[in-house]
Design a protein around this nucleic acid. Structure first.
Lengths: 220, 220
DNA sequence: TTTTACTATATTGTCGACAATCCATGCACA
DNA sequence: TGTGCATGGATTGTCGACAATATAGTAAAA
């Protein structure tokens, strides 16, 4: 059920996932250059597979490539984060609307169950699980949209970038309790099959999240 | 200014653009398999550049690849078209909202000028230019959002798929006059810096477009 | 006749080498 | 001193060959 449960098949897959993980975690730092030769010796594979991995990293917006020059990890900027959240707001808002229309009753029941589990954690002050819990929540609704295009856009492109920002700017799940209430209201709207409201609430939820992060950034 | 004015640098670029064009136009038919060997002999390049081109085609959602099996052109379905328009609605709605906030006065003036040109064409019954004109209109607003993430998502991923559907399902620009009025109202809202309204109108505009296409599909 | 196992063939994945392009260093010249 | 231009080194782009995997066809067994 987790969005990050890919099982690599080819060795390109492995290298792709390995490098992606390093980029998101900041092991390979933002803005730095990716040398094909270097990466191929590090991982013990030929340049061909590294090239393929880099291509795929480009597609998920984690690196930028220029012909004959090379690939660089994207640089994290204040503005970039804002723009990313604007896209998220639009896409996840639509996902919530569609989820209210398209989720099966069983899926909705599972969503409510997930929410109940989160409540237990919040109550006990286990904010450790918040990050993963939040991801799970959003991912579940995304799947509930039953829109393949939307699912692949968010889970392949957006989410890893969001994670990269969160990790590297040190956003360890704040807003735990307020976010929980927002989640609850969204689930309520979906349970009522009110797509209009679900979209509105989801958009606000992400907007709040963005404002919160922005405020944090300005402290630095 | 046109969204399709890329200048290929490497030979991968050329092959990528060539194959993409064949796919969108239906020369390579939807659902068919892409043989690396075949394509490399046809275009007179090595398999490596064909592989890179296919990778990039995968990233723009025009082909699907399975490890050790190969790549197939996506299949066009009724449902796929609807889902595509749902994503467009979300993204272009946000683009219109941001355009109202972020476009410079100069950009807005140019947008009004573009609209005036369209009016001349519509008045004279030149529906031939409608397709390109419509693309230009939407693309201009997209650029006006000044959101790089949004721009690359729509212009790299969505628009080519939309074109593929339009071409292969034979949607030669209907709705010319009504669409023009909708465009006009959107520009008005942007000129008034009313992001809220611009988003709403753009979403409706795309929704109408979707409904129109759906109705056409049901005739077959 | 149907099913299963195997073999042959075709296709994709990976590799190392060569070609083309870019970039930094240093030299000539104004 | 500063600008422009050659040269050398490093990096990316492209190629053909080999390895690994999937598919189709055939033959053997139930």
């Amino acid at each position: 059920m987790s969005p990050f449960s890919e099982s690599p098949i080819t060795s390109s897959d492995k290298i792709f996932i390995a490098i992606r993980s390093d980029i998101v975690a900041g092991v390979i730092e933002a803005g730095s250059k990716l040398s094909e030769a270097e990466l191929s010796t590090i991982h013990g594979v030929s340049r061909a597979v590294v090239r393929e991995a880099i291509n795929r990293l480009e597609n998920v917006s984690l690196v930028e490539r220029k012909p004959n020059i090379g690939a660089r990890v994207v640089t994290l900027t204040h503005q970039g984060l804002i723009q990313l959240y604007q896209v998220r707001e639009a896409l996840e808002g639509m996902a919530a609307r569609l989820a209210a229309q398209n989720m099966s009753d069983k899926e909705i029941a599972q969503l409510n169950k997930l929410l109940a589990n989160h409540f237990e954690e919040v109550k006990d002050g286990e904010s450790y699980y918040q990050e993963a819990g939040d991801v799970d929540f959003h991912y579940r609704i995304l799947l509930g949209s039953h829109n393949q295009q939307l699912i692949s856009m968010l889970s392949n492109n957006i989410y890893h970038l969001v994670r990269m920002y969160r990790v590297q700017l040190g956003m360890a799940g704040p807003r735990v309790t307020t976010a929980f209430v927002e989640h609850k209201n969204i689930v309520q709207a979906i349970s009522n099959r009110d797509g209009e409201l679900a979209e509105l609430l989801m958009r606000r939820h992400i907007l709040y999240s963005k404002n919160n992060i922005e405020a944090k950034l300005k402290q630095n």
